[in-house]
C-alpha cells in the first residue's frame, strides 16, 4: 500500500522551545489516522508542517512522495486542510466562502454548485447558505470549514481538531462524514484531544510534549499499553480511590465518570478478586468490581504518566 504521509525525525523549534521533537511515523493511503494528544503537545505544529505552512527545523516530511517544504506548491491541490481556528471570511456568506474555495481550487463552476448542494445536504448547511459567516455559531462555522476543505475532493485531508467546541450531535455528524470520506478512498489525518473520538480511527499516534509516545490501531493501543484494567463502582467513591492508590500491584488509579479505573501490573487472571480482597481488608464499601477494556482515555493517562515532562530540550536523549 502506498504511503500518503511519511515523517522522519521531524523536529520543529521555536527559539528554545521544541514543539515537535524527532517525530517519525507514516500514514498509508485510505487510513483514518488519528493524531492524539493534549493541547500543546505538538499536533497542530506537525499538521501545519505537513500542509506547508511551517518549515521543519530538521528531519523530513513527505506527502504523496513530495517534500512538504520544497515541493509545497505541487502538494497544495492534492490536500485539503481544515485549520484549528476558523480561517474563512467572516464578512462573506457561507455560499460566497464556498465559491471562493471553488475558485482557489479551480473546481469548475457547475461541479462546484453540485458539490455545494451535496455538501449542504450532508452537513445540513442549506438554511444558512446566505448568511454571513460571522453570524454563525462555532458548530456551524466548523461545518462550513469542513465543507470548504473537502470541496475539491482532495485525496488527502488534514483536519485539525475539527470537533473542538462543537456539540455532540455535530460531532457525531462529523465522524459520519469522515467515515464516508474514508469509504470513498480519501486518506484522513485528524487531530483531537478528545480520546474517545480515537475509536473512529483506523490507526492512531499519540503525542505528548512534542514526542510521539505511542502508535498503533485502537485495539493495539488498548491491549499493548495497558494490560489489565478494572472498574470499581461505589458510593462514596473517594475511599476506594485512596485504598487502591496505596496498593503495590496497582500502577494507576483514576476517576472515570462516577467510577474508579485501576490499572494493574501484568495480566492477572484474578484481577477482580484481588481488588475485591484489597478493598475488603481495607474495610472500604463497594458495589461492584469488574474487569473492563481500557478506554482510550485510560491508555492516554497511563502513557502520559510514564513519559514525564522533559526538563530541557533533548536532555533525556
Amino acid at each position: 500500500m502506498d504511503l500518503a504521509v511519511e515523517v522522519e525525525n521531524l523536529t520543529k523549534r521555536f527559539g528554545d522551545f521544541v514543539a515537535v521533537n524527532e517525530v517519525s511515523f507514516s500514514v498509508a493511503e485510505g487510513e483514518v489516522f488519528g493524531f492524539l494528544g493534549p493541547n500543546g503537545s505538538g499536533k497542530s505544529t506537525t499538521i501545519r508542517i505537513l500542509c506547508g505552512l511551517l518549515s521543519p527545523s530538521s528531519g523530513h516530511a513527505r506527502v504523496a512522495g513530495l517534500d512538504v517544504w520544497r515541493d509545497a506548491e505541487r502538494i497544495r491541490q492534492r490536500i485539503g486542510y481544515m485549520p484549528q481556528f476558523f480561517s474563512l471570511y467572516d464578512d462573506l456568506t457561507v455560499a460566497e466562502n464556498i465559491e471562493f474555495y471553488a475558485g482557489l481550487y479551480q473546481v469548475p463552476p457547475a461541479l462546484a454548485l453540485a458539490r455545494q448542494s451535496e455538501l449542504a445536504e450532508v452537513l445540513e448547511l442549506g438554511p444558512v447558505l446566505d448568511r454571513l459567516a460571522r453570524t454563525l455559531s462555532t458548530g456551524w462555522r466548523q461545518r462550513l470549514a469542513l465543507a470548504t476543505s473537502i470541496l475539491h475532493r482532495p485525496p488527502l485531508l488534514f483536519l485539525d481538531e475539527p470537533t473542538s467546541g462543537v456539540d455532540p450531535l455535530t460531532r457525531r455528524l462529523f465522524w459520519e462524514v469522515i467515515g464516508d470520506l474514508a469509504h470513498e478512498g480519501i486518506t484522513v489525518f485528524v487531530t483531537t484531544h478528545v480520546m474517545d473520538e480515537a475509536e473512529h480511527c483506523t490507526r492512531l499516534a499519540m503525542m505528548h510534549y512534542g514526542r510521539l509516545i505511542a502508535e498503533g490501531t485502537p485495539e493495539e493501543m488498548r491491549t499493548e499499553h495497558v494490560q489489565t484494567m478494572v472498574e470499581v463502582q461505589a458510593h462514596p467513591i473517594w475511599p476506594v480511590l485512596q485504598a487502591l492508590e496505596k496498593a503495590p500491584e496497582v500502577v494507576e488509579v483514576a476517576l472515570f465518570g462516577d467510577a474508579v479505573h485501576a490499572e494493574l501490573r501484568c495480566d492477572l487472571n484474578d484481577a477482580e478478586a484481588r481488588v475485591e480482597r484489597k478493598l475488603q481488608t481495607a474495610g472500604v464499601a463497594y458495589e461492584r468490581v469488574v474487569a473492563v477494556t481500557p478506554s482510550m482515555e485510560d491508555v492516554f493517562v497511563s502513557l502520559a504518566r510514564r513519559w514525564e515532562r522533559p526538563t530541557a530540550a533533548g536532555a533525556d536523549r
Partner: peptide, 14 residues
C-alpha cells in the same frame, strides 16, 4: 489578523 491567510497559503493559488 483574521487568520484567513492560512487559507490562502495552503491553497494552490500562486
Amino acid at each position: 489578523e483574521w487568520g484567513s491567510f492560512e487559507t490562502l497559503v495552503t491553497s494552490p493559488a500562486l
